[in-house]
Design a protein around this nucleic acid. Structure first.
Lengths: 232, 232
DNA sequence: TCAATAGTGTCTTTCAGACAGTATATA
DNA sequence: TATATACTGTCTGAAAGACACTATTGA
């Protein structure tokens, strides 16, 4: 009905900024392009939103691409819409509007992502990527990653987003390492522990069974308690 | 090149959540639909993103629609992308993906918007809209307005977004009234003034000429100093 | 016993909320 | 002179940054 010639339609795609923390460093998952344009350059994993008979919602498309690339159970993954990039010239071939998403993978699961074949993707240092010139990435993907980084760094302060990067159970130090990897600074262990304890009192975190032997003295293990639906 | 049958394309639209404050109340600008579906129901002003020969960027489309509806100079308007809504069934006619935007109009300019003819749009109480059932608005526009409200209420605390709603010069009370209209609560005048003064010390606000006679004692007038490009 | 990490306690500053009180205009 | 609004000052408690200190393990 709306499908008349008055509105020639753009292509709509999703692009994923997938972050994880490996060895105390924030990483982003990128694919290597194997054709023009930007042949050989790294780019974000993405795909077109399916329409027509086998149509899907935009978020659905993002989940599908995420699942394709990671092969991990959806429960262990975090996904959130970032921003929609719709400049006229962002794809030299055709008009493509990209809805970008931020995805997080727990550090204990990140290594299970297949990355033997480099076109399948591999983990890059976010720091290096952001410092490199934007033309070292395909399309406007440098901008998108930069946007994704701002989002996670910002949300870190006032949301439980970091819990999507630690294993199911974790120690105070492990959580702190995540924060340090993202912000690129070191936190005072004592002050970090105090904030941690407040979350424990507030019921955001609960004590888990067992202890974790990391180096010297074994540490208490905790678990994140997802928002009980009673909250506003 | 990408335009082959593998990717039938959705329609891409922009929808605008235009807020202002009138008489200490937060208002949203809505149009009345005059055809099916949702005939007669209020809906957000919006339009399709132009593609093809006379194509435009998505943000460009948002500015265009904003200009069309308000007829106000762009410098006096604030526009920011909100969220992209892309559920399969959000438009009963066809597949439409909507990129929503938050727009703010200064309270002294809001009354210049043409609203004599009701299909041209009129101001609604945001509070009433949010409390009414979502089916009293066309499409998923209740959700979009709710999203827009959350955005502005959140950003109010830690960004200079409120300055886009006051006149070019303003008093402490006027700015406080904006905050109160958005949050729906009253602020302690003394404490609000303290935060205000800090922004004055930080150079975010500067003293303007003259005084404003509102009721009893005339108040000092201030002006917002937009971020100097020297900032990070 | 030493090194390393886990964990506790304290001092200081900053800032928000509550609220008492003073100043200056209009009616 | 009354009163409404503008504006100042103070008390309290929550929370962050800096940092000294104790505890418990493995090597």
């Amino acid at each position: 009905m709306l499908q008349d010639t008055h509105f020639p339609k753009p292509v709509v795609a999703v692009d994923l900024v997938i972050f994880t923390v490996i060895d105390t460093t924030l990483k982003v998952f990128l694919i290597q392009r194997d054709s023009a344009p930007f042949d050989g350059l790294p780019c974000l994993p993405g795909g077109f939103v399916r329409t027509g008979e086998e149509g899907e919602g935009v978020e659905e498309a993002a989940w599908r691409v995420l699942q394709q690339k990671t092969q991990l159970p959806l429960e262990a993954l975090y996904l959130e819409q970032l921003y929609t990039f719709g400049a006229l010239d962002r794809d030299p071939r055709d008009r493509v509007i990209s809805v970008s998403y931020l995805a997080l993978i727990r550090q204990d699961l990140a290594r299970y992502i297949p990355q033997d074949y480099r076109f399948q993707g591999q983990w890059y240092d976010v720091d290096s990527i952001l410092q490199s010139p934007s033309i070292s990435l395909a399309f406007d993907h440098h901008t998108i990653i930069s946007y994704g980084y701002s989002r996670i760094a910002g949300k870190l302060e006032y949301t439980p987003i970091a819990f999507s990067l630690v294993p199911h159970t974790f120690t105070v130090s492990e959580l702190r390492a995540i924060h340090e990897a993202i912000k690129g600074t070191s936190y005072d262990p004592s002050n970090f522990r105090r904030r941690f304890k407040r979350q424990l009192e507030d019921g955001v975190i609960v004590v888990a069974d067992g202890k974790r032997i990391t180096g010297a003295r074994p540490a208490k293990v905790y678990r994140f308690l997802p928002a009980t639906t009673g909250r506003e």
